[in-house]
């Protein structure tokens, strides 16, 4: 007998004569306490994210590339990993050319195995899009794909995320239902709610444990 059948048989024997419990999921319990007026949604998200050391800026969809440039230059950073195959990537590239920005643009265009060392140690910052935000917990939803792979939002010490104001939902349950997540998830879906942190030594909070030391969120107010 295989381990699989032994385990399943034991479990089935334990359930002999019982019926499954009904599904009495009460969605009100995970939605009602977490609903916000449209004008409070962004404030809530911002407050929660700032409470865990996230830098948040509200900008327009025309201005944000200049803001990115300013963020990088003020920190004296040398390069930025971006995705030229996305709409926001193209917009960034256009701005970079026009403004003759000095910060070098880098592209995640080959499998990780081909440039692991460089990606782990040499990239200063990255910029990615998000598919939305969650006001209740102050979270970003990242849906990594070919253009913006999983590690793009994890390895660089500074991660800049673009969030369209219209894509902020009240709570996780609403986000899940609205976008019908149960019908199909990507290989890796992420909720990100701040820069990497730990409190493993004396419960003293320290940022920049293994992931980004800084998270900057640019909320595009007119998008």
């Amino acid at each position: 007998m295989s381990a699989r059948s032994n385990i399943l048989n034991k479990l089935r024997a334990g359930l002999a004569g019982t019926t499954p419990r009904p599904d009495d999921f009460d969605e009100g319990l995970v939605t009602t306490p977490w609903q916000y007026a449209a004008e409070d949604r962004i404030t809530r998200l911002r407050t929660l994210m700032e409470a865990v050391h996230t830098e948040v800026h509200q900008v327009t969809s025309a201005q944000w590339p200049a803001k990115v440039q300013e963020l990088l230059e003020s920190r004296g950073l040398g390069n930025l990993l971006y995705a030229p195959g996305t709409g926001h990537g193209r917009q960034l590239a256009v701005h970079w050319q026009r403004s003759c920005a000095k910060v070098q643009l880098m592209v995640y265009d080959r499998p990780i195995e081909e440039w692991k060392d460089e990606l782990f140690w040499k990239v200063d910052a990255s910029i990615t899009g998000t598919v939305g935000g969650i006001a209740a917990t102050g979270s970003l939803v990242l849906w990594p794909d070919r253009h913006e792979p999983r590690l793009m939002s994890l390895l660089p010490p500074l991660h800049i995320a673009l969030l369209k104001a219209s894509k902020v939902e009240d709570n996780l349950y609403g986000m899940m239902q609205k976008h019908n997540w149960s019908a199909g998830l990507p290989t890796n879906l992420l909720l990100v709610s701040g820069p990497s942190k730990t409190a493993d030594i004396e419960q003293v909070l320290a940022y920049g444990a293994h992931g980004p030391k800084e998270l900057v969120v640019l909320i595009l107010e007119d998008a």
Binding site: T137, T187, S193, P195, K197, G211
Partner: peptide, 12 residues
């Protein structure tokens, strides 16, 4: 309210 990362893995 939530951890910094919620990592949902559905495949290689």
């Amino acid at each position: 309210p939530i951890t910094t990362y919620v990592n949902m893995i559905s495949g290689p």
